[in-house]
Nucleic acid binder design. Structure first.
Lengths: 327, 327
DNA sequence: GAATCACAGCGAAACGTTTCGCCGCAACCA
DNA sequence: TGGTTGCGGCGAAACGTTTCGCTGTGATTC
């Protein structure tokens, strides 16, 4: 790879002049400008971003951590993030944590050492102290979809409680009285909000909230299957199940398949996702739609904004959800 | 962020000693080792990977370019790649090109300037000269799922022709005589192989290959819809359609929905994907399964191998496909 | 005509590491 | 005791940029 020095030699100017021309950071006479540009072209010079990053203390790199890249909701978010970042001239360093504390910590350290200009975090219950530390160290952070317990920072969320309430209310309007809830780990604020929404909907309808209808999963399809088994084993099994994760829903569906349960006639399913796939596939599965790609875009905007100005007050963006009834 | 220098001052040793301790690159007496380790811990020192990269000329960064992160096949590949890389201590720089030449070039340049140690490329018809240049410049490259026209390099492929042949043969075995093929751009070798496979299956069955049954799409669902419209408008429309991309298939399916065509009774669909979703959703859609996640893993292994030894002869890994009949 | 000014271009330091050769000291041998 | 050896630790250069302050030249002013 050619260096700026080689360009300088070829153009018979100093290194600083080459830098000035390429970055347009100072006036250089037309003649030298031309010579430099030609030399750079001939050598196919590309500036070394590592050296530049070391000198300028900016890498134009954004780190992003998601639980699982292959889950539709997250890949949509990543898509949105990538789109926005690329336009702004930033690159995306992506990591998958599988909600494991260990991986989260390791990745957090990796991203810091790589000197990312900011991080987009979609963390499970997590290394609160490490995050607090990151916040303190002035490293721009945006939390996406899940808010941290203790620290303040920029957040992009959806109205989880309200979304769950609307979804459950819609199921109630369809005549369901016992509605199972398959939710993520309870130590996540998201999960608690959704449980609150479930309760609120039941309360509004004058129905009791039977806590045994709440199943805790870990967003895998396996946990969805297990949850459905547990729900069906209840003395009074639910007639509808709201699985608040795409894979947990497919797990439920797979279990229904295995048991020969007809969906939605014998058991109605609802999920939390805006994957376009639900529109083309059967069985009809209603959903609470969150604008995942837009969340990614907003998160990217937020982090760029914060990089530009670290002293802005923390901002929380709450995006609305929409209930999509199907079938 | 603390620097190695601050650690050195605190431990009252030289910078080189700190480096030696932290990298275990030379013997240091137990006493100094302890002092250094303690100082590093107290300061919460994290080595600056940018500086390290500049000095060592290795960034432990791998760039990956895919057409679309949100498509299941690609997100599975990314998942596989990420998993392997993480274990090896590398990070993933991910870009989405949407098969656009312009984006591909821009990203290629970006990755080079970021000094990635290697690239995993899943390119459309593309900037052959830029790639040739990259190959020449000794930058480790692995082509995934799509092979470049002219240059030699490491490749991870699936048996496209054979996979298509098997898939079409399976449809023929089900009694279909006219089988539409919705394939990607013809300038991709992948597409041509799949067309070859389609032809081979028809020939083996003694059926003529009506070229008007071949539709060229661009892997979007819109192009899938358009293709299906075109196929149904034929004088003799097909009774089965093999859409060799997940989104193109969902486009076909959406169009069937819109037209009220029953799948698979009136029109059978087959796709090219190993998304686990097909198992849980209706209508039953048979597929030629490629091991996407494994392809990602193998690609990651290949690039690490090549980074370790640039002089290895180019290797091509061809993974098998499997026909999954459904319904 | 001497002093001042403007400014294009340059030199060198700095960013935070790694690495290589060197130095000084203790131990050993003759 | 003087020379050699071994080795723990250190200093400094190098990686490829950016940036700031300086230099030298030609124009301007009194």
């Amino acid at each position: 790879m050619p260096t700026i020095r080689q360009v300088a030699e070829r153009a018979k100017v100093s290194i600083s002049t080459v830098s000035a021309v390429l970055n347009q950071s100072a006036y250089v006479s037309p003649e030298l400008t031309l010579r430099v540009e030609q030399a750079a072209r001939e050598l196919r010079y590309t500036a070394n971003a590592v050296a530049r990053g070391l000198q300028s203390q900016r890498t134009r790199l954004i780190g992003m951590l998601v639980p699982d890249i292959a889950e539709p909701v997250y890949s949509l978010m990543v898509q949105g993030v990538e789109r926005s970042l690329r336009q702004a001239g930033y690159s995306l360093l992506l990591g998958s944590t599988h909600n494991r504390q260990r991986e989260q910590s390791r990745y957090l350290g990796m991203l810091r050492s790589k000197q990312v200009d900011g991080m987009l975090l979609l963390l499970g219950f997590g290394p609160e102290d490490e995050i607090a530390e990151a916040v303190e160290s002035q490293l721009p952070l945006v939390f996406v979809a899940r808010e941290p317990k203790s620290v303040a920072g920029d957040v992009v969320m959806v109205d989880n409680a309200e979304g769950a309430r609307k979804g459950v209310a819609a199921l109630i309007a369809r005549g369901h009285r016992r509605i199972g809830l398959v939710v993520g780990p309870r130590d996540l604020a998201v999960s608690r909000s959704r449980i609150d929404g479930w309760r609120a909907a039941l309360a509004q309808a004058g129905l009791g909230a039977d806590e045994s209808l709440i199943c805790e999963g870990d967003y895998t399809d396996g946990s969805g299957r297990a949850a459905l088994q547990k729900l069906l084993a209840l003395r009074e099994p639910p007639t509808a199940v709201f699985a608040t994760g795409f894979l947990m829903m497919t797990g439920c569906l797979a279990e229904c398949r295995a048991l020969g349960l007809a969906v939605p006639s014998q058991l109605e399913l609802m999920t939390w996702s805006d994957s376009p796939l639900l529109d083309v596939f059967d069985p009809p599965i209603s959903s609470v739609e969150q604008p995942s790609a837009e969340m990614g875009e907003r998160a990217a905007e937020l982090i760029l904004r914060r990089i530009a100005n670290k002293d802005l007050p923390p901002q929380t963006i709450v995006l609305p959800t929409h209930v999509r009834l199907r079938g």
